[in-house]
Simulated scan of single mutants.
Amino acid sequence: PDYNGLKMVLGGETLSGEAIQKLRERLVNNDLAHGDGGYRQHDIAGEYLARIVSDVKLARPMKIIVDCGNGVPGAFAPKLYRNMGCQVEELFCDVDGNFPNHHPDPSQPKNLQDLIAALKTSDAEIGLAFDGDGDRLGVVTKDGSIIFPDRQLMLFADDVLSRNPGAEIIFDVKSTRKLFGWIRERGGRPLLWKTGHSFIKAKMKETGALLAGEMSGHVFFKERWYGFDDGLYAGARLLEYLSKQADINATLHGLPDTINTPELNIKMAEGEHYTLMDTLQKTARFPDAREIITLDGLRVEYADGFGLARPSNTTPVIVLRFEADTNEALERIQADFRRVIHQAAPGLALPF
């Protein structure tokens, strides 16, 4: 593998940026602490399931399909939702790290095709999918539409704000701009923030926000939960919310939508993506922009859409995303970004 999957936490703080570089310096300089430690083992599965089932309640029984992609959630998700009162059809719930059926990444539509097909032939109302370690949720409607995480966050915001008017809700720079109005209309305070697990968690701690979400599929509940991202718990809260709706398909299809691109990547040599981003932040001009946000790369807000270019925190790529009210607006915004990127890096191959 090219990359590891380690997250390091010290005293409740997820290490990133400067803090993780300081740890590297200590390792290089052999500046290490010595002493006696220990460890203990504890099977938390029973308590975990009981804690969720004791608090998250369905208004009526539901029939669902769960696709675990042979990841770890397969050991827990079917039991959790059955204990909540759901009838559960299982897809790929045997845990197998070889992932023989499809990659367990619900952010990629190609990994949801089995779930979409199963919903067509089943009388299940909705499909849930999880990533390999269970901290991200994918949602598919009865007719096979994918409800991407920024639109999932609209439902969670509606629910949380019904009990907590005035609450702050955080979403990352890759998310739809429709969240701003949706949250304000329900009496909440929207806050746009940097993409990244560690950044979102730190901002939640700083602001006391009750809910946060990332376009990648991580949703963090502080209301009724512990403020960490858990796809199985997010699925439980979604089912609780939908079980109270008169028509769940009308609710899901009634969410504000836009014309948008998936996440697009410009692959570069290590470090080059940061250099290009610095240049763009200093030199790029957008005459038609309503607002230029530089907290994480460049997010440019227009009257009818937005464009985003940001450096990935984990790989040497520039991440791009575009959203607009019409196809014409989308093409115009993309042309604006094409212009400024080619001014800064002539000849760079672009994925749009």
Rank of each mutant, 00 (worst) to 15 (best):
R177F: 13
A77P: 03
F92L: 13
L308K: 00
D288T: 02
Q108T: 07
K203Q: 09
I116A: 09
P109I: 02
P73I: 06
I147F: 04
G46L: 03
K203G: 00
A202T: 06
P149E: 07
I169S: 12
K110F: 05
F352S: 00
D304Q: 12
P149T: 13
D159C: 11
R136D: 00
Q113H: 08
W225T: 02
A19W: 03
E18D: 14
T251Y: 10
L210G: 15
K178A: 11
I116D: 04
V340C: 05
L115C: 12
R285C: 03
A157Y: 06
C93N: 05
P1A: 14
D257N: 09
G181S: 14
D114C: 09
L350Q: 00
L32E: 03
N4G: 11
I126Y: 05
M8N: 04
M62E: 06
Q152T: 01
M268K: 01
R51M: 08
F337C: 00
E270H: 13
G127R: 01
A129G: 12
P106A: 07
N313S: 13
L348I: 15
Y81I: 04
F220C: 09
G166I: 08
T207M: 05
T14L: 15
V319K: 00
A124R: 09
D94V: 14
G188T: 13
Y48C: 10
N83A: 15
Y241M: 11
E301I: 13
A167P: 07
A284T: 14
Y3S: 15
R224M: 04
Q334E: 03
R40N: 13
H34V: 12
G307C: 01
A129E: 10
A33H: 08
H253Q: 10
R189S: 11
D257Q: 10
A75Y: 02
V340Y: 04
G138V: 01
R177C: 04
S162A: 14
Q152M: 08
E206R: 09
R177N: 12
K7W: 05
C93V: 10
R290G: 08
P316G: 09
A59R: 08
E223Q: 14
L295N: 01
G46R: 05
Y302A: 09
R338K: 13
N101T: 06
A50T: 09
G217R: 00
G85V: 12
M268R: 11
T275N: 06
P100F: 07
L128C: 00
G271I: 12
S54E: 15
G134C: 03
P190R: 03
D31S: 15
D229S: 08
T294G: 05
Y233R: 06
L239M: 04
R189K: 14
P109N: 04
N83S: 15
L119K: 02
S198H: 12
I52R: 06
S312L: 01
G297M: 02
A77W: 05
G69M: 08
E323P: 07
V140S: 07
D133L: 08
R151S: 09
L280E: 05
Y274V: 06
T207E: 06
V95W: 02
P73T: 13
T283V: 15
E240W: 11
S243T: 02
G213F: 01
D96V: 05
D257S: 15
T314E: 09
M84Y: 14
H253N: 12
